[in-house]
Design a protein around this nucleic acid. Structure first.
Lengths: 111, 111
DNA sequence: CAAATACTGAAGTTTTCACTTGACTATTCA
DNA sequence: TGAATAGTCAAGTGAAAACTTCAGTATTTG
């Protein structure tokens, strides 16, 4: 039970790499083993495992090992945290624009 | 796996740095000059200007210079693109979980 | 006009990061 | 059992990225 409250720094850093985003995208279709994930990627299995470690530490992915196979699946909490951060910025900005619009729409005060 | 979507690549890379995310967050409150943005940050003005260049190239921020002051403001299109990507992953994963739930909820077929 | 302000540009340093190699362990299977 | 499979570990390489310094250029302002 680690990373129950994944922090935005780690999540955004993890999503900053194209390979890791590709992994996340593929995992959204369903769980996969490390080697299945590695197969279409033009890099060593070790490199993929390292990416997965970053993803797991960020809380975007959870993995478990049964036998010799490590199965990886998406953890939506991480994605949700990122989405919330973005939406927060956007809504602040947009409500500001709204207020600005209202002010500009007001008839000019005499004074 | 590079350049699947160069636009999202740039946006997520830009958001991957904590300083740049701090800049975005502050710009969501309203436009600011380069030096106002730099003031609370523990780094040189040049460094901040470099971050702003990355943000501008990613489409997250737009800037314009009047006189000697460069004013920076948020461009929501970039944030929207990132949000859409995340939501896409999440919805694919969640609808998959829903289908799985339906299957598991079905009465077991006689076989 | 002189000094202060607000950046800009070029070049260097340091740190981080993606990725590799090669050796190793554990599990499955023929 | 022995060989293939799946992943792990430790250490190193090279390149990108963050940040610095220092020397500029415009633009205000006293």
């Amino acid at each position: 039970m680690q990373n129950q409250n994944p922090d935005a720094d780690r999540v955004f850093h993890a999503l900053g790499d194209p390979t890791r985003r590709a992994i996340v995208a593929r995992l959204s279709l369903g769980p996969l083993s490390v080697s299945s994930l590695a197969q279409p990627l033009d890099m060593t299995l070790t490199a993929v495992a390292q990416h997965l470690l970053v993803l797991e530490e960020s809380g975007l992915v959870r993995t478990g090992k049964t036998g010799r196979v490590r199965t990886c699946h998406l953890e939506t909490a991480g994605l949700l945290a990122a989405e919330r951060w973005i939406r927060g910025c956007r809504s602040v900005w947009e409500s500001r624009l709204d207020r600005l619009g209202e002010i500009l729409a007001e008839p000019p005060d005499a004074d």
